[in-house]
Design a protein around this nucleic acid. Sequence first.
DNA 1: CTGAAAGCGCTTACAG
DNA 2: CTGAAAGCGCTTACAG
Lengths: 329, 329
Amino acid sequence: MTTVKDVARAAEVSVGTVSKVLSKDQTVKPALRARVLQAVETLGYKPNLAARALRTNRVSMFGLIVPDITNPFFAQLAKNIEAEAGQVAHTVMLANSDDDPEKEAQQVETLLNQSPRGLIVVGASRAALRGIKTQVPIVSVDRRYGSYRLISTDHQKASAMVADHFFGLGHRRIAYISGPQSTEVGRLRKKGFCDRISELATTGDPVSLVTREGQFNYLSGEENAYDLIGQAPDVRPTAIAAASDQQAIGALRAARDVGLAVPGDLSIAGFDDITLAGLVVPRLTTVAQPSGQIAKAAVHALLEEAADGGRDQVIAAQLEVRGSSGPAP
Amino acid sequence: MTTVKDVARAAEVSVGTVSKVLSKDQTVKPALRARVLQAVETLGYKPNLAARALRTNRVSMFGLIVPDITNPFFAQLAKNIEAEAGQVAHTVMLANSDDDPEKEAQQVETLLNQSPRGLIVVGASRAALRGIKTQVPIVSVDRRYGSYRLISTDHQKASAMVADHFFGLGHRRIAYISGPQSTEVGRLRKKGFCDRISELATTGDPVSLVTREGQFNYLSGEENAYDLIGQAPDVRPTAIAAASDQQAIGALRAARDVGLAVPGDLSIAGFDDITLAGLVVPRLTTVAQPSGQIAKAAVHALLEEAADGGRDQVIAAQLEVRGSSGPAP
DNA sequence: CTGAAAGCGCTTACAG
DNA sequence: CTGAAAGCGCTTACAG
C-alpha cells in the first residue's frame, strides 16, 4: 500500500503537508497543493482509514440495527439510510436484533465497539431499558430504543388522514382493524383513526365505528374482514381501514371471496405502502411512510449532535389514494 | 476510554502480556492470565478496534453489496450473512448498487477502502468487467460480479425438480413462464426446466411444452398466464411453472379471474419461496433457495482463502410442495 | 514465560 | 505557510 510517506516523497513535501491537503486545510499554497494532488493521483493513494480512525477517534460509519431486515419497511429504511450516509461519505453497518431485547443489546455493543459515528436503532418490541454508556450518539427510528430520541412517522396524523378520506367519501359505517395494542405503533395508529372519527361524528353526520384488534399480518386482516363483511348489507361497514397493508390486502381477498366489489361495495385502505400495495387489484389506497425523510433526519441528527439529548421528531406521512377506495355505495 | 495500558497497570503486568491474554496466546501463565482477565472485567476494557486494525491490517468486517436490499431474496440473504458473520465475530457493511454497474464499482471501492476481511457481492445485471486490484478476497453470490468465483443456487437442477414434480403428477401439457433471457438466472432456470421436460418426453409419454419469456415480476406472470389459460380446455396447459414467485402469484390471480381452480384445473409453481408464497391461497409450490447455506459458504470462502481463485460453488435448492400443485385433471 | 520497544499510518499542536 | 515530531492504542518480533 502507498502511504502518506510515499506521497510526501513523490511530491517533495512533508507528510504533514500531505495530510493538510487531504483534509482540505486552506493554508497550503496552491503550488504545493497541486504537487501533492498530482502525486496522490499518480500513486493511486488511498488513506488508511484505520490509521485515521485511531488518530481522530472517529470512523466514517453508522451502525444500523433493525428487528428484521426482511421486513419490507425496514429494508426500505435501510436502503434510504445507506443512500443518505453515502451522501456524507459514510458507510453503514447493518445488524438484525430479531426483535429480541437480549440480542439487540448484544448487537448494540458489537456495533459500538467499532466506535461508529453514530447508531441508528429501530427498537425491539419489548425492549429492556438497561442504560449503556457511550460517547457515540444514538437515535431511535420508528420504534423507540431505550430512552433515546425517536424519529418516526406521525402515525396518528396519518391515520387521521385516512379517517378524513373515508368520511369525505361519504362513508358512515366504518370499521378499523388495528394492530396489536401491545405495540406503540398499533396504539398510535388506532388512536389517530378513532379520535378523528369521533371528532367528525360529533361535528357532522353520525358515524358508526367498529374496531377489531388484530396482528399486523395478512391472515389477521383476512379473518377480521370476513367477520365484518359477513353481516347484513345494511349493517356491514362500507369502508375498512387497516393498520397495515398486509391486513388490508387480506381484507381485499376476503371481499373478493364473498363477492363484494372494491371499491363499489366496500372501500379499503392500508398503511405502509409496501411494494405489493401497488400491485394488487385494485391498487391499495394507503399511507406512505416518509422513509426517505426519516432516514435523512436520522443521519443528520447523528452528524450534528455530540451526544443524545435532541428532541423527538415526528414526520408527516402522505396518503396515497388509489383504486381501493371510493364513494360510499 | 480504558486502554491496554490501564489494564496492564491494574494487573501489574506489561501491555504485551495483556495483549497476549486477549489474543488467547497460550504461553501466559494462569496466574497472570487471571489477573489480566480480572482487570479487564473490573475496568470494563474494550479493545480499540481501529488500533488493532492499523496494527494487523485486518478488520473484522465483511462488505456486502446487493443490487437492492428491498428485494426480499437479497434481504433474506443479507440477514443470513449477517448472522453467519456474527458467528465468527464479524460485522457487516451493507451497500446497494441499484443494479447499476457504475454505482456498483463505486460501492466496491468505498467498501474496499475500509479494508474489510472480505467482500461479498451480488453482481449488477449488466456488470462491466473492469478489474480492480486489491488484497481483499471477493466472492460473488447469486449473480456473478466481475470474474470472481460465484456461489449460487443450482438453478438448473432446481428447475428440473419442478419439471419432475409436474410430470410425476401426470401433467402432459405444460407451460413455462421464464425470466428475461438477458439474465443468467433467467437462462439457467429455463434451461433446467426445458431440458428436463425434453428428457422426460423422450423416455416417457409425449409432453407438449410451451414457453413464454417475461419479466420476473407479478404483472408479467399475470399477463402471460392469461394468455396461456385463455385457450380451449383441451389445448391449454394443465400446469404452469414460473421463473419467480412473483410471476407465479400473478398466474394464480389470472387463474382465479378466469375461474380455473388451482390445483384442480391448473397447477402452478414458482421459484424463490418469498414470504408471500406461503400466504397466498392456495399456498404456492415453489423452490426454496438455500439462502442460509449460500451465506455460510460465502463467509467461509472469504475466511479461508487469502485472495480469490476458489472455484465456483453451486448449492442444491429444495422443492417446497404446497397447495398450488396437484394431479393433472 | 515475560517485558521493553518498535512501529502500523495517520493527524495535529508546535516551532520556525 | 511548512516541517519535524509526538502520539493515537494496539501487536509482535526480539531479548532476557
